[in-house]
Design a protein around this nucleic acid. Structure first.
Lengths: 202, 202, 202, 202
DNA sequence: TATGAATGAGACTTCATTCAT
DNA sequence: GATGAATGAAGTCTCATTCAT
């Protein structure tokens, strides 16, 4: 029984470390997180982390690759049901984007890259590709669909995509800062967001 | 070895230290910035910083109070010329907001509070009051003006203000992250922003 | 450069550190002793001390608990042979008290508590209980014995015990201060002490 | 008026500094006392201390010379009325010794010399001469007087004087350590002290 | 005389990392 | 694979002291 437990642990270790690390990064940022606190949270010895990761940066990169990137990709890429009224499709897609972008792990990554991204230019680029560039692509598809259906003005395709996804990013920013002081009510925020967009696009 | 052993400039010192500190905070965040690096950049001894500031946090608070807060307030509060077409007024105001919010010192503050704000709840609140709550107030005034003139739908006053200012915040975020990878062209971005808003509001 | 880079002696380390610390405390007091000097004397790195002790105070407390307290207790509590003439018993006991109280480690503790005791009220109290209160108890036992045997006046039990043990404490004080200038010859001092006491008690 | 005040101050400065220093030494010992705290207590700037004293050690030496030494000498050397019964003379002298030795400034000096005396060998020696050697001299005089009168055994002159003055020193030690935990009632302590001595000496 | 300004040395402490078992 | 032990580098902060005014 104990054997098995060890066995199971051995394989799960990197996962466990990443999981612990993400929680610590969330609370204290990258620079503010110590290997020791990760180890404590993961219930292992400090030096054991070095069995699986080169150094602290590697833990962060590991977290990035193993978790978040996939999470975002999966969640965003799942096929959308494009039948039904355009507004409904739009809303569905926005909700999905909110879901993936605001999930805690993704927020942590966003947060760390925001201030400590210069240390990880590669990751910054990959994050951009995975989230922002991807969002742009999806948006273009969606708008093209709307244009094809005649529900959307053709010239909206010229809009800078960041203008359109801005409220999503702002919601993330809010979560990281002013949520307690001045919360955002996500459902009604989304309603208004969809309302605004449909006025702009039609 | 040193140019002048003791330079006399008591009055300039805090300014100099804050200036150096902001540059370091910009590059490395709060936790990642060492008192030593601030001192070096300011061209003084490490211990001299402690003549003017209690500790590292006090340097940050000093930067906040002495510089940025005032800067933002001044820049935003300057009286707007509300004559002329509504779109023009809107554009003027947006440009002013961009100017104050995107100025380097304000960005640094935003960045630090974004990731290390939990350590400074008081400052976070003051920042919120100075920037976000203030923006909300101005926006309400502006929209009320538009409604009064008959150029704006009355029900836009119900919009969550964060939805409307989102592109400003996103521009700040972009500056801190993806600007190099995928830059924003501010003039045309602003044009589209105004265009979008006028469609939404009318 | 170093003999053996990592010596394995986990179990001995705390002892070694305490031993080094006591020597430093003896020379420089608590405030005047640096962690660095303790480390150097112990032949280890400064930071290694923090593996075993929380901070400098903890080193002092460790020294107190691990060494001195036990030493004093053991030495004082060992059963006395109460047969034989009262003067002989008295002398035996005094010698034992001198032995325990004047041993170097105990002296160091006494010295530190004497001047820096306010920082360690708990230890001060424990020290008092271990040494002074204990001495009082022993003294009462001894005098009661003498009274029972008819060799001691019954009313000596009313004497303040500090009056009777004063020469012991003074010897300790002397060791810490004037020993070089004006030494005490312990054997003859003890003879006279016993002589005085027997005159007082009979 | 202001002029006068300054004038008065100017001459009083060393006194004021010493007075402040003694209070700080009493609370924190020599090593634990900072020039800054002395200055603050004296209501002057840190650097002003260096106008009057070479360095921190000099402040201590100044305190020693200017105050305590004189105080002790005066208080002890005042002529004793040697008429009346021997016990009464003895008691008078003991009370006087207690008074001088337990006065706060003298205690501070005693305390500092006890732990940090190695740094001040000269002062230690002078302190010894002023207090202990002086006490020995006085004691010899007193005992000789008693012997001459036939009230004291001639061989008490052989007693080590430290045996006889021990309770005085112990009282000082107690004040510095266990007074709060286990106070000494000085009047009755003195009574018993005199009682003991008269039994020993007669 | 008095002091504000400045600093270098050094204190404590943390932490990422290495290494032998 | 896992870890306890150890450390060097670095960081924050204190403080006695100097100097020019």
């Amino acid at each position: 029984m104990r054997e098995k437990k060890r066995q199971r642990r051995k394989e799960a270790r990197p996962e466990e470390i990443i999981s612990a690390a993400l929680k610590e990064f969330a609370n204290n940022g990258f620079a503010g997180t110590s290997i020791g606190s990760i180890a404590t949270r993961a219930g292992i010895a400090r030096s054991t982390i070095y069995v699986y990761f080169e150094d602290k940066e590697a833990v962060f990169e590991g977290a990035f690759k193993d978790r978040i990137e996939r999470a975002i990709r999966i969640s965003i890429n799942q096929a959308a049901d494009i039948n039904g009224p355009f507004d409904a499709v739009l809303r569905t897609m926005l909700e999905r984007v909110f879901n993936s972008f605001l999930q805690p792990d993704a927020l942590v990554l966003f947060k760390v890259l925001l201030t400590e991204g210069q240390q990880f230019p590669t990751l910054l680029e990959r994050y951009h590709a995975t989230t922002m560039a991807n969002a742009k692509r999806m948006l273009t598809q969606l708008l093209t669909l709307g244009v094809d259906r005649g529900e959307v003005r053709p010239d909206v395709l010229d809009y800078d995509h960041r203008l359109i996804i801005a409220p999503v990013i702002v919601t993330a920013v809010w979560r990281l800062t002013f949520e307690k002081i001045d919360p955002i009510d996500l459902p009604s925020f989304t309603d208004q967001y969809v309302d605004m967009l449909s006025r702009v696009l039609r």
